[in-house]
């Protein structure tokens, strides 16, 4: 773009990467220290035998924790806090869980098909009590395919910001402002991919991830609605207030 200089893009990459590292919940070194420890069979069985509502509550708590870090990330993205408050809320309501799914590849072990959860690495079978096997399988498949792109922390940071700044979310009041921020982020991401000498296909593969993320999130909402229809009081009294605000 004639209006965005290389220096500006470099600066954006730097700022967004720093924000990502400051808010990423787990550093890669910390995860390595956990030595990729998997749950033992009796631990897996204990998760599987939890009542459905208890497991849902546990997962809602974990998702909410992760989302709080994403909110902090958003606040540190250049220009995000200059948007009107309505749009900040719209972008977070629609995008925070998507970023949690993107970030999941950092805590995912592709070889064992396990994800860091509640202190150890868990396979999809750990989440059986939720009663959402199809969604869990899709989430694991998504993490695996994100991992296969081998994105660096910088690239992940830029892609996360790009997702958060999606200008096509419904109910945005200052769409144009968001569009400008997203375009700048996309340029910075392209610039970074070129600089890192990534092959041309990576950006295209990331574009496909955008629709996959939307599908995962809408399926999460469907599953929550189905759960809430059976356990309205559990959601009302035991689920984290932030989770209810975002997905209620």
């Amino acid at each position: 773009s004639p209006t965005t200089s290389m220096a500006e893009l470099d600066h954006l990459v730097q700022v967004i990467s720093k924000s990502h590292l400051e808010t990423c919940q787990y550093l890669r070194e910390e995860l390595q220290q956990m030595s990729w420890q998997n749950f033992l069979q009796d631990e897996v069985e204990s998760y599987q035998s939890k009542p459905r509502e208890v497991m849902w509550q546990l997962c809602a708590v974990k998702i909410t924790e992760a989302i709080q870090y994403v909110v902090e990330f958003a606040k540190r993205i250049d220009g995000f806090m200059d948007l009107c408050q309505n749009d900040q809320i719209v972008l977070l309501k629609a995008g925070s869980l998507e970023v949690v799914f993107v970030r999941m590849c950092r805590v995912f072990d592709s070889q064992n098909n396990t994800v860091y959860f509640d202190g150890k690495f868990a396979g999809p079978e750990v989440f059986k009590a939720l009663g959402c096997d199809d969604l869990i399988t899709s989430v694991f498949d998504f993490a695996k395919s994100m991992c296969s792109l081998h994105l660096s922390e910088d690239e992940l940071a830029l892609f996360s910001a790009f997702i958060l700044l999606s200008a096509d979310r419904t109910w945005l009041q200052e769409k144009l402002q968001v569009e400008k921020l997203q375009q700048k982020t996309q340029l910075a991401l392209q610039h970074l991919l070129q600089k890192n000498q990534r092959e041309d296909g990576v950006l295209n593969k990331l574009r496909f991830k955008v629709s996959a993320l939307r599908s995962l999130c809408s399926r999460h909402t469907e599953k929550l609605s189905a759960f809430r229809a059976v356990y309205p009081d559990i959601v009302r009294t035991h689920f984290p207030p932030l989770y209810k605000e975002l997905f209620g």
Binding site: V71, K75, Q85, I89, L92, K93, L242, E245
Partner: peptide
Amino acid sequence: KEKHKILHQLLQNSTS
């Protein structure tokens, strides 16, 4: 605003 009380709060807390 009431509907997104916590989100508002989180957005208003200063980043540290």
